[in-house]
């Protein structure tokens, strides 16, 4: 029987209790919830084990069933690589390839499809990236402590080999990224892949030379200006294009297919998308590493 000196009353405690919750509103009334400890621990562990076992068995059954159904479904899909009886080769594919160059101006049929025929999906997709950046900024901005950043700096930026190799690799990578973005309508590539390459180049630069050198040109204000302007340009270009395709003549500045400035709006859209993706990739890196852009 223990006497607790804090309060005036005596109350009985079971030995070695570990689940006591004391709730006190005023000094006079105390509510003590006490359970015999060992029984409670045993019940808890038994309950947990039973629940985990049920979850595992149910999940296992669902998994086996789902995969069995999907494998059964694969047997009914068209034969891989066949071109006879292939129901997916219909008039849409013929239209995209036959008239693709005249209508869109892009020699790369996939770019012509995603930035011209099915441009609404790509608009939604750019906003998916934007949502991701917003959410990551909500979570990670101003979250890290300053001491951690200083320690990381000391640990990382003393590497001479990294600096030497980065000093000739980074310009080449950025140039490759710019080439892929600009040639999106002519050869394989486009805004998304080119933007990812440029983002990787920027990350390498920041790893080798430190945060101060990148924050000269990439801070939160520039980031917001670049992403907002690119998204607004994309949105308004596509709104104009959709509106004029229903009411009135299409505005479609063409150029010669095969040259860089061809494809009408596709060039501008590729450029915007490339900028957004590059800034987003680098922004993710900075948010995870440093806690702010």
């Amino acid at each position: 029987m223990k006497k607790n000196k804090l309060f005036d009353e005596e109350f009985e405690l079971v030995n070695d209790v570990d689940e006591v919750s004391v709730f006190q509103e005023k000094k006079e009334d105390i509510v003590v919830k006490v359970l015999p400890p060992k029984t409670r621990k045993r019940i808890r562990k038994g309950e947990e084990k039973a629940l985990t076992a049920i979850y595992d068995i149910a999940a296992g059954v669902c998994f086996v069933f789902l995969i069995g159904v999907l494998l059964y479904c694969v047997m009914f899909l068209p034969i891989f690589g066949a071109n006879k009886n292939n129901i997916t080769l219909n008039e849409i594919v013929t239209e995209y390839i036959q008239n693709g160059i005249e209508v869109t101006g892009a020699t790369n049929f996939v770019t012509g499809m995603i930035l011209d025929y099915r441009a609404f999906d790509t608009l939604g997709e750019s906003f998916v990236l934007f949502t991701a950046v917003t959410c990551v900024m909500i979570l990670l901005q101003n979250f890290h402590d300053n001491e951690e950043i200083e320690f990381e700096k000391i640990k990382m930026f003393n590497d001479k080999i990294l600096r030497y190799s980065a000093s000739f690799l980074v310009p080449v990578i950025l140039l490759l990224g710019a080439y892929v973005i600009l040639n999106g309508s002519i050869s394989p590539g486009g805004g998304f892949s080119g933007g990812a390459i440029m983002g990787a180049g920027l990350i390498l630069y920041s790893l080798a030379f430190g945060f101060k050198s990148t924050s000269k040109f990439f801070n939160i204000k520039n980031f917001k200006i670049i992403t907002s302007t690119s998204l607004l340009t994309y949105c308004l270009c596509k709104a104009l294009s959709f509106y004029t395709s229903v009411n009135g003549p299409m505005i479609h500045p063409f150029g010669i297919p095969g040259a860089i400035f061809s494809g009408g709006f596709i060039f501008i859209l590729n450029f915007c998308v490339g900028l957004i993706v590059a800034c987003t990739m680098f922004g993710f890196y900075l948010l995870f590493k440093k806690g702010e852009i």
Partner: peptide, 8 residues
């Protein structure tokens, strides 16, 4: 691959 290529 679906790219216009050299012979367009």
């Amino acid at each position: 691959a679906p790219v216009g290529g050299i012979n367009q």
